[in-house]
Simulated assay, not measured.
Amino acid sequence: MTQIQRLKEIYQLLWQKAYSKNEIIALLEPKVSLRQLERDLIDIKNSYLRPTEELLEIPNGKRMYYSITKRKTKKRKLNFDDFCIYDLLLNSENEVLNKKFDKQVLFFQNFKKALFETFGEHQNFVQKNIIYKTHFYELYQDETFIKNIIPIYKAIYDEKYIQVKQVDFDATGDNPELRSRNLKLKPLKIIFHRGDYFLFSHCKQNYKIFEIGQLMDVIILDKSFTLPNYQAVFEQEMSNRFGVSNNINQKLYDIELEFSESTGNYISKMKWHESQQIKKLPNKNYRLTMRCGINRELGGWIFQWMNNVKVIQPPELINIYQKIINSIHANNQKNNRLESINFFNKG
């Protein structure tokens, strides 16, 4: 019998009724020493009980009896903020959010732990720490996001407009026309993308996506809208984009890229866009085709593969790609100050 199996058996015994140490030893097979049983009881108490359970020590004459029972605790009343935070953590389990909302995280972790009926086996896996998370591309120390997320979440739930004092830069593709103060938006959907949170919204007769940390001083307005009316628009708008960045125009393009054999084999296992088609070529390279707009995220994604990718079509994307290569080369030849230039602005 392994340690986990023995702890599980002791746990099940103590749920049935109270036992003394000698009675527990008599029921176990194979037998264990008194010292080993005492260590097992400490392990059960410290590591293997559910949050709703406790190990009782019941004196009876000269003997001590042990039993496991449900812990008597006051039920914590959940509020709207809690549900918002649980929703965020279910998607990302972000390290920064975990530290910021430590009380809610503890409740959330206990809830997850209670989902496992075979508690011992689960605890053993958790303690091994077999899977390591890099937190690469994860939102990091953004206090503006922390301030914004609950009012935006609440506004979407209640189908209310929000007002934004100003937009601080734009992570999705510059919106210079939206620098004005007191911008009114219909907040339609929160998008979790590349470890960060974005807001899909209706603004000035257009649909815009903002990184939530870019929106300054968000307040909820009394004015209402009907959220379900925008679901189809949201789905169509997302299918038109590569990721969440703004497209250069309203056109959709037939994108065709060729990847080297090793890189193509890797990208063929991933989902990049709902329209993607990936085919292995006779020369062992891979061809990826998809139909979507051209935007900054598409350009950056292509450059990620360095010299293992070639843009086949459309001509518009080839021209932008070459223009960026020329600009990179020029930057490396001069000692000029870098400027924020977006080659994917509307043209």
Score class of each variant (00 low, 15 high):
Tyr321Phe: 14
Pro282Phe: 05
Tyr66Pro: 01
Ile212Phe: 01
Asn307Asp: 15
Ala114Val: 15
Asn265Ile: 05
Ile341His: 12
Asn124Ile: 03
Leu41Arg: 04
Asn319His: 08
Gln109Leu: 10
Tyr207Asn: 05
Asn307Ala: 09
Gln205Trp: 06
Asn124Arg: 08
Phe111Gly: 01
Phe83Glu: 10
Ile255His: 01
Arg241Ile: 13
Asp222Lys: 14
Met216Arg: 04
Ile278Cys: 12
Lys184Ile: 12
Ile312Met: 10
Lys103Asn: 10
Arg296Phe: 08
Ile328Glu: 05
Gly347Cys: 02
Gln304Asn: 14
Asn79Gln: 11
Val233Phe: 07
Phe107Ser: 04
Leu178Arg: 04
Ile219Val: 07
Leu257Gly: 02
Lys346Phe: 02
Pro315Lys: 13
Ile255Tyr: 00
Lys103Ala: 05
Gly195Tyr: 12
His273Ala: 08
Ile44Arg: 07
Leu185Ala: 09
Leu185Met: 14
Asn46Thr: 07
Glu237Val: 08
Leu178Phe: 14
Thr289Asn: 06
Asn265Val: 00
Arg35Pro: 00
Ser268Met: 12
Asn283His: 02
Glu23Phe: 02
Gln3His: 04
Pro315Tyr: 08
Leu252Trp: 04
Gln109Thr: 08
Pro30Tyr: 06
Phe198Tyr: 15
Asp81Tyr: 07
Ser262Asp: 12
Tyr19His: 15
Glu93Val: 01
Trp301Met: 10
Lys112Glu: 10
Tyr19Cys: 12
Gln333Ala: 07
Asn98Ile: 11
Glu38Gly: 11
His193Ile: 05
Tyr86Ala: 15
Glu93Met: 05
Leu281Gln: 10
